[in-house]
Design a protein around this nucleic acid. Structure first.
Lengths: 180, 180
DNA sequence: GTCTATATTCCGATAGAC
DNA sequence: GTCTATCGGAATATAGAC
């Protein structure tokens, strides 16, 4: 494994921060470079084009999500409860990277859309192991989507207080209860 | 009431179309004007700044959503079923306007964020009349958010085939069932 | 590897003719 | 009301010094 490319990581982190706090339009090469503490030329050495920067973020967020799916699959509380509980925006690196990717104009950045689609599919697969009714699995999935959506929409901070999650989990238990 | 400002409506419609099909970055004044069949100067007569264009879209989408809330409140099937059924992206003017507003970088466009927040609140209020358990109402709300989110994320077309909605409605019925 | 120019394109907005 | 022409600024990307 490579010796930890600190410069690349710092640049991607700056990209995420700006997307999160100021939106896509503010995430210019100049701004990313300045936030990371390098010049624009320095940035372009690591990411030759802006598309390369988006590609870097896409790979980064997919890697983080893959780790999350592993934890989800082996969670004692079960995948569904783990998924809903962690769908509340909590400032983790994964949450930040996902919202940042969401902020990219996805019609203009097919790669960003692809990353989010893959991540959602990974979650749905992990959910389906526990929640065998497809419609129920989809409903749980959609609630998680909605939680993330609220965070992506309402700005930088969480819309859902953690104390509300407990009640939400009860509702989910009602969904995942056996049927037919 | 004014004599139907056709030019304004045509410009807003072009703005929505471009946001929907190509994303925020493509929605320049030039592109909006060209799509509407007028010059940039012509556009700027009706909307003196780009913020004015966003304001126009925000008012437009809020008005359409207010109509929807009225229909929702008087729907024979009940607000919850109506809400979920119509949350599937269906190319209605309201759906298009909402997704278009979603595409605007909301950190940079507080007015777009405000419009979406107000619309969600209106839906939640209407839902709460039928679904009195707040957590259950929130869960139904979130499923609708998730459906819209999927549409906003996956591009221009619907992610959820209408034939899946029936099964989703059964799940919702399980949520809205009496509790305690 | 990181920097400072600089080239080029494009966007939002203004001015003023018609 | 709608047009053309144009300004000022900003964004992506290149070239080449260090």
């Amino acid at each position: 494994m490579p010796p930890a490319p600190a410069a690349r990581a710092k640049l991607l982190d700056a990209f995420v921060t700006i997307l999160l706090e100021q939106g896509e339009r503010a995430a210019t090469l100049d701004a990313v470079a300045a936030t990371a503490g390098v010049s624009k030329g320095g940035l372009l050495y690591h990411f030759p084009t802006k598309d390369a920067l988006v590609e870097g973020l896409a790979e980064h967020v997919e890697a983080l999500a893959a780790e999350d799916v592993e934890q989800m699959s082996s969670a004692p509380e079960g995948p569904a409860a783990y998924y809903i509980r962690t769908s509340v925006y909590a400032d983790t690196p994964l949450d930040q990277a996902i919202i940042a990717t969401t902020r990219l104009s996805q019609t203009a950045n097919p790669r960003a859309r692809q990353a989010l689609r893959r991540i959602r599919q990974g979650w749905l697969d992990a959910l389906s192991v526990e929640v065998t009714d497809p419609a129920a699995a989809r409903a749980v999935m959609l609630i998680g989507d909605g939680l993330y959506y609220g965070a992506a929409m309402s700005g930088e901070t969480s819309e859902t207080p953690p104390e509300d999650v407990g009640e939400l989990l009860e509702v989910v238990r009602r969904i995942t209860g056996e049927r037919d």
